[in-house]
Nucleic acid binder design. Structure first.
Length: 226
DNA sequence: GGTACGATTGTCT
DNA sequence: GACAATCGTACCT
């Protein structure tokens, strides 16, 4: 087992070209990879166990489906950087930008296992709410963001800089791990079609993989007074 | 200028 | 299993 202090190995940090591939390939290769964040309150490393692929303007479920906007601009930018957004005014979700610049594909980091900095991640999670167990530390995209200490300040963070605040590490010789695919979580409308968009990827038999939940039922419009 | 809604989570029943 | 929390963004008038 490596020392808990995540000493970055530059030769294990994928290059920008590595991210400039199809989002599905990058997503599959990210499973089992380590993400290390260096924040003022500490350093945390997570081993990714679950991701989702979003294909920009070709994907009805993607934020970029309707073209570039102020919010999703990072997705159209350089691959190998982070696209972070706030969801429901409550949570943050973290994506890795993939594909060539100008193509808004991305991989949503959904869940992982905290392998270093458990105390730091646990402290963040306790501050943010309830923490039931270590398995819950980074199970779910918003929880993962909290555990890693990522918010909008990490937007466009460069993952290819071994000395950066957010670094992805992956052994260059290891092929993609065996994984399972299925429908994406919480995606409604056309993009929820599991047959056409089985773009959730996870490692089998991992307790940190989030529970599948269909898209939240649409809130019934309040009855209007006649 | 107004409004509907969301790549989620935690709590309550 | 159902629902509230909570606010920025996108879309409509």
């Amino acid at each position: 087992m490596a020392a808990m202090t995540a000493a970055t190995r530059p030769d294990h940090v994928p290059s920008r070209d590595w991210y400039q591939r199809d989002a599905h390939d990058v997503g599959a290769d990210l499973l089992g990879a380590h993400v290390t964040t260096r924040r003022p309150d500490g350093e945390v490393t997570v081993r990714l166990t679950e991701v989702e692929v979003y294909r920009g303007q070709a994907d009805p479920a993607s934020h970029a489906y309707r073209g570039p906007t102020a919010r999703n601009a990072a997705m159209f930018g350089e691959p190998g950087r982070l696209y972070v957004y706030r969801h429901l005014g409550l949570h943050h979700c973290v994506n890795v930008v993939t594909g060539p610049e100008g193509v808004a594909s991305a991989v949503l980091l959904r869940a992982g296992e905290v392998v270093a900095g458990i105390d730091v991640a646990g402290g963040r999670r306790r501050r943010a709410g309830v923490l039931r167990s270590d398995v819950d530390l980074a199970r779910g995209p918003a929880r993962l963001a909290v555990a890693l200490g990522l918010d909008l300040t990490a937007l466009r963070a460069d993952l290819t800089d071994p000395a950066g605040d957010v670094v992805v590490q992956r052994h260059p010789a290891v092929p993609a791990l065996p994984h399972v695919t299925g429908p994406r979580v919480g995606v409604s409308g056309e993009g929820a079609d599991a047959g056409r968009y089985p773009w959730r990827l996870w490692l089998p038999d991992e307790p940190t993989v989030s529970v599948y939940r269909p898209a939240a039922p649409r809130r019934r419009p309040a009855a209007r007074k006649a």
